[in-house]
Computed example of a mutant assay.
Amino acid sequence: MQPTLAHERRTTVDEIFDHLYGEISSLRLRPGDRISEAEIAAQFGVSRQPVRDAFTRLANLDLLLIRPQRATEVKRFSSREIEKSRFVRAAVEAEVLRRAARLCDADGAGRLESCLVEQRKVIADGDFSAFGTLDYAFHKTLCDIAGVDFAFEVISSEKAKVDRLCTLGLSKEDRMPQLLEDHEVIAAAISAGDEEAAVKAGMLHLSRLDSTIEAISKSNANYFDPEDR
């Protein structure tokens, strides 16, 4: 896709991608659901090409399974891909946390506290989707403080691959307060310049999804790739 100027309108591909990404990540479209290129094209009143391009972008995020001459479907979870994603994210985030702890100043500490204030508010409101957005913002702030804003591209890409599991975990187990507490511990360690404490808290934070994965694999085995079962 060609780069566009800031004042130009978003493309049809962007609009279709965002719509489908929202449907998939919110689980309105569930793992294994079939999705029709023709139906989406009709819904948006466009040709199939922009739909095809949006499908390709979603497939690159491991959210769609596109098979020639067969129906496209929302991709099921893969235990191997989850493990791979977690490995990559842990390696990147550990370095981000170390750098952030070394470089954090009063302004950085204030930005982290502002993130926490917003998170506390949405928890009080029980707003699951808003917390997910603020979770991304918190990790982006850590990357900014660490001076490696590009690292957030990797982190957000890996997070996107397991966001649906996070949605299930948050909505079914109401774990937002626990995740907020993790963020508070991470922010405190960063603000204090304690690299090891920051990394330890960050790795614990990443491990919170383990019990959710195990529970969902038992209660909704059909959400996982048949090869995992």
Rank of each mutant, 00 (worst) to 15 (best):
P3D: 05
L5W: 05
A6W: 11
H7W: 12
E8Q: 08
R10T: 06
T11Q: 01
T12P: 14
V13G: 01
E15L: 09
F17H: 05
H19K: 11
L20I: 04
S25N: 13
L27V: 07
L29G: 07
R30D: 12
G32Y: 10
R34P: 06
I35V: 07
I35L: 09
S36T: 00
A38R: 12
E39L: 07
I40N: 00
A41S: 04
A42D: 14
Q43C: 00
Q43E: 14
G45R: 09
G45F: 15
R48G: 13
R48A: 09
P50E: 08
P50W: 06
V51K: 04
D53H: 12
D53V: 10
A54F: 02
R57A: 03
R57I: 01
L58S: 03
A59P: 09
A59H: 06
L63W: 09
L65C: 11
I66L: 15
P68A: 00
Q69V: 05
A71W: 07
E81K: 09
I82D: 14
S85I: 01
R86C: 11
V88R: 03
V88C: 02
R89A: 07
V92F: 01
A94I: 00
L97R: 02
R99D: 13
A100E: 00
A101K: 08
C104K: 00
A106P: 15
A106K: 12
A109F: 15
E113S: 11
C115K: 02
L116K: 07
V117K: 12
Q119R: 04
R120F: 01
V122S: 04
I123C: 02
G126C: 01
D127V: 04
F128I: 15
F128L: 13
A130H: 05
G132Y: 01
T133H: 11
T133V: 13
L134Y: 15
L134N: 06
D135W: 03
A137W: 15
F138S: 03
K140M: 09
L142Q: 09
C143R: 03
C143F: 02
D144G: 00
V148E: 14
V148I: 09
D149Q: 10
S156V: 04
K159D: 12
V162L: 06
D163A: 13
C166N: 11
T167R: 15
T167V: 14
T167D: 14
L168E: 08
G169S: 00
S171G: 03
E173T: 15
R175M: 08
M176Q: 04
M176P: 01
L179H: 08
L180C: 05
L180G: 03
E181K: 12
D182Y: 09
A187C: 08
A187Q: 08
A187R: 10
A188H: 04
A188M: 14
A188F: 07
A189H: 10
S191D: 12
S191I: 15
G193S: 11
D194I: 00
D194N: 15
E195P: 07
E195F: 10
E195Y: 14
E196A: 13
A198W: 04
V199K: 04
V199S: 04
K200G: 10
A201W: 00
A201I: 00
H205S: 02
L206Y: 10
L209Y: 13
S211L: 14
S211I: 15
S211P: 14
T212C: 04
I216H: 06
A221W: 13
A221L: 12
N222C: 11
Y223N: 09
D225F: 07
P226N: 09
D228F: 08
